[in-house]
Design a protein around this nucleic acid. Structure first.
Lengths: 263, 263
DNA sequence: CGGACTTTGTGCAAACGTTCACAAGGGCGT
DNA sequence: ACGCCCTTGTGAACGTTTGCACAAAGTCCG
């Protein structure tokens, strides 16, 4: 029962926004299960997930009527249903290409192995790194990419290599059979139809934060609370201007960073 | 000229979706500037950013009419305008709390320093890590968090610590004066109004990919291309079922991962 | 066994985001 | 100087997402 996805009701497709939130609910549900809580209301689960309760109910309604009116949702059952919908009831071997800092972080990431994902292999092109063991995985050479992907039936690849190498790695992964890519390199990857890419760009997240931070500091203009105002004026437009041609180099030295706060 | 933000036209607020794309355009523009390209059309810039050209034009129109009809946009000028809008013409000191793998990755991240961000300090609670130098930054003890934040006027903090510690770190950062938080820990942070949090959850990205991968493998059912089909059936529902109470343990052994592909 | 109470599931309307299509406007060749 | 051609900026249509508010549907207690 309940094998055929997308057929039971009229739901032919679950909205993308909903899909993006299901892992959030799943995490909150696991936390509840760990505390031996068997049942949860939409209000509680929504609060634990940081979303509106109506939104949560609508999201869950897309995968069926798995709640009990007047009571709530069975934690274990809901975990199973969401997992099944997301495809987490099967095991996903993943290759991590690029054994630098980010690749290591990813390989060591706790939530990685615990939710149906498994590092099939780490790869790197640096001969000094190839052969070493990271988080229990021996690092393969980049030339073995195709072999590893085919051998382990890898469909998901994470690119944690430098930006210049990313497109080439991507092409090779796709050719070898990978159809889903998690890209950490700050480039726009070109992929054929049928392959989808999710990108995580730390710099972009920071820039979005900077926008909101700026917006906030425009209101409480001079100082907020008890902080030292000096650095608010310590611009360093240097590297921006250097590549645009609008040079306005101010205070060139960084009065920070080294040995200021005594340990 | 052009000093007062958000006043020129009727634009009191730039849509959030636009803000999230501006860093993307900015990156593409820097790439063009590096190649000494002075002018770019919306079509070209859109292609380089991986978005629709109409969307790009509408996005840019939110910050003013900085293009020239019949010609396109001046690369340098647009870089300046977007940078200003995002608040990147000033320097943002950032604290990284948690000097584990992810914290190291972040500190070493190239796009970090190059766009107006600067690591003011790294912090960790592990006495073995405190005092060591990572990416040129000495690691401070967690007890110095407040001091560092106030001293350097830090408004942005990145939490790369384990999930259990995240909320406490968050509270302390906010109390000390941080108003923007980039959270890598897989928990929903509770913050007062006025503080905004962006979360990056590697596990969630992977789960979204898994959903799409599953959807794809439902069509080309048995095998796709030339790959080994075995692993597609190699479920490992074990750890899922164990916490839900619905045990259906199949094939318990992992026939993978160790020393299969010869080097 | 019945009625009150609780919570789900959903119709609906508003807000938001995307895409098309085209008029307005500026450069460039002649 | 004039008209052609190119590209921007934007009005309008469309699709998606959110949130309210409430009926449907179950539980629990007396």
């Amino acid at each position: 029962m309940s094998r055929r996805t997308a057929s039971d009701k009229g739901m032919q497709g679950i909205p993308e926004a909903t899909i993006a939130r299901l892992p959030l609910y799943l995490r909150a549900l696991y936390a509840l299960a760990d505390r031996d809580i068997a049942s949860v209301s939409s209000e509680e689960l929504a609060a634990a997930s940081g979303v509106n309760s109506a939104k949560l109910r609508k999201d869950l309604s897309h995968l069926g009527s798995y709640g009990t009116r007047g009571v709530g949702y069975d934690v274990g059952y809901l975990i199973y249903q969401i997992s099944r919908e997301l495809g987490l009831t099967q095991d996903w071997p993943v290759v991590i290409v690029g054994a630098g800092n980010l690749g290591r972080a990813l390989a060591n990431y706790g939530g990685f192995a615990s939710r149906g994902f498994r590092v099939a292999a780490m790869l790197d092109s640096d001969p000094l790194v190839v052969g070493t063991v990271i988080a229990g995985h021996r690092v393969y050479g980049a030339d073995e990419m195709e072999r590893v992907v085919v051998r382990y039936g890898v469909m998901i690849g994470a690119i944690t290599a430098p930006a210049v190498a990313a497109q080439d790695i991507c092409d090779r992964l796709v050719t070898a059979g990978v159809t889903s890519i998690l890209n950490f390199a700050p480039v726009v990857l070109n992929v054929p139809d049928g392959v989808d890419v999710r990108k995580v760009d730390l710099s972009i997240e920071l820039q979005i934060l900077a926008f909101h931070a700026q917006r906030k500091s425009e209101f409480r203009v001079p100082h907020c609370g008890d902080r030292d105002v000096r650095s608010l004026d310590a611009h360093r437009r240097g590297d921006l201007a250097s590549s645009t041609g609008r040079g306005l180099p101010l205070d060139g030295d960084d009065p920070v960073a080294a040995e200021a706060v005594g340990t």
